[in-house]
């Protein structure tokens, strides 16, 4: 028995789906944000798996860029959450619906 690339792909698909379910079911904005990070990480796992099995560094390079974007996104998103909390005193996304039609 050897670990083929399918094992990593299935694990990453499972983590992505758990992240999707978390975004759809949770109502706390911070936890929704953490679920997005989980989905980004499952995509990273796919990239690293393919990069390792193909013997090419480019996939890992893109993981590096994804991490950069995730850090920027976390900083800006958490700042937005703080600004919303200062105005409405809640982070429940059911109460933050001023942009909803």
């Amino acid at each position: 028995m050897t670990i083929t690339i399918e094992y990593y792909l299935i694990l990453s698909a499972f983590m992505f789906i758990v992240g999707v379910a978390g975004v759809l079911t949770r109502r706390n904005a911070i936890i929704v944000f953490m679920c997005i990070e989980l989905m980004l990480n499952s995509a990273n796992l796919t990239l690293v798996a393919f990069s390792s099995y193909l013997g090419s560094s480019v996939g890992q390079l893109f993981v590096f860029f994804v991490m950069t974007v995730a850090a920027a996104e976390a900083a800006v998103g958490l700042a937005i959450i703080i600004a919303i909390f200062r105005n409405k005193l809640t982070v429940n996304i059911d109460d933050i619906n001023i942009l909803k039609w």
Partner: peptide, 14 residues
Amino acid sequence: FLLLAATIGALILA
């Protein structure tokens, strides 16, 4: 550049 923009944006937003 994206990290710089994110830093400034986070400061201004928060």
